[in-house]
Simulated assay, not measured.
Amino acid sequence: MNSQTIEEGRGLAILSYFTFIGLIIAIIMNLNKKNEFTFFHIRQMLGLILMLIISNTVEAYVHSWLGTILWAITFLCWLHGLINAITRKPTPIPFLGDKFQNWFQNIK
């Protein structure tokens, strides 16, 4: 990715990290632009939403501290992704970020 692509997609990449609605808006607005930096962060956020669903499910049905720990890990990964979008870095979140890129590779 070149710096112009990153700069053009930065705003939507940041927006994608703000709630599910921000993610949907970023997807819709990027459909015509096809900015790879934005799509990179959209795929990261989709993975984070999946992590959040899993952590909430564990917390609701297992009734243990494990769900809270998973939620905290998800939050820290979200913060990492948001900071990367703000600082113009296409860096995947730790551990699962590369997997998210593979799982959601059709989103482009």
Rank of each mutant, 00 (worst) to 15 (best):
L46Y: 06
L50R: 06
G81I: 00
E8L: 12
H63W: 10
T74M: 10
M51Y: 03
T5F: 05
A72L: 11
D98A: 07
G67Q: 13
T38R: 04
F104H: 04
A72R: 10
I83K: 08
F40H: 02
N106D: 15
F37G: 00
N2D: 10
N106G: 15
I21F: 14
H80R: 12
L82N: 07
R88F: 03
L48W: 01
F75N: 09
N2F: 02
L12F: 06
F18R: 09
E8W: 04
L23P: 01
I24W: 06
T68K: 13
M29Y: 12
L48D: 00
Y17S: 05
W65R: 15
Y61M: 12
G47H: 02
L96S: 07
G67F: 09
L48C: 06
T38F: 05
E7M: 03
E36N: 10
Y61L: 14
N56E: 11
T38D: 07
F100N: 00
N35A: 09
E7K: 08
E8K: 11
D98Y: 07
K108I: 14
H80Y: 09
I73K: 00
R10F: 01
K33E: 13
W65I: 14
I25P: 01
I49H: 04
A72P: 05
W103T: 14
T87I: 08
H80C: 10
R88H: 05
Y61V: 11
V58D: 04
F39S: 09
F95V: 13
T38A: 14
I69D: 11
L52G: 11
V62M: 13
I83G: 04
L82I: 13
H63I: 09
T87D: 05
Y61N: 09
